[in-house]
Amino acid sequence: MQWGSASEFFAMGGYGLYVWTSFAATASCMIWEVLALWRRRAAIRAEHQARLLGGIDETAA
């Protein structure tokens, strides 16, 4: 282990901005992708259940 303190760790030898931007961007994209899929699935379920239980006529559209 090469870090003497937490601030040394976050500084990344002066490259903190570049290193942390890279990791934060990657994490954000992945989390966003998972949440987007979650919402997409919830929307499909909600629409389908409304159609089945709410008596919306599928042929009407």
Partner: peptide, 18 residues
């Protein structure tokens, strides 16, 4: 925490892991 500092690029090389 395990991989050492790169002798040429310092800590910036850690971007390699993503």
């Amino acid at each position: 925490f395990v991989a050492p500092t790169d002798f040429q690029q310092g800590e910036s090389y850690r971007i390699i892991f993503v």
